[in-house]
Amino acid sequence: MSKEHIKVLLAKKKIDVHGRGTKLLARELRDAGMEVVYFRFGVVDEIADAAVQEDVDVVGVSVMTSGQIQIARGLIPALKARGLDNVLVIMGGIIPEVDYEPLYELGIHRCFAPGLPGGAVAEYIRENVGTATLG
């Protein structure tokens, strides 16, 4: 589905100082024509609250200091509980590959490893936005 204005919520843990990746990605998505809400969260409910108020198409979570499984376990039901069942949910940062499958089972649509070529995330979003469901 092609959308004129794709809105993305980029969330990063508040206690996590590793912000360069998220900021770089925010800029990249902005330059790809997307509207990016950047913010730092303490608990996953804050991500879900922000996502519903901003009515975003995509939720991206940066994880640099572990906790991805717990975040996914809380986030997906929190999004669904607020009626956001067709939002695309992606993760990036330092996530061991062995966690990818469990994360996909929890409802995360895609994990991005560090070092991808520029534009990879934007391309994925553009191709998949609007088609995803949180089944």
Binding site: H5, D31, A32, V36, Y38, D49
Partner: peptide, 22 residues
Amino acid sequence: SSPFSMGALLGDRDRMLEAASG
């Protein structure tokens, strides 16, 4: 919004988080 890409970085919410959380 950027007049070139039409993209935007919306950063205001980040500053308001503690006042609004939950």
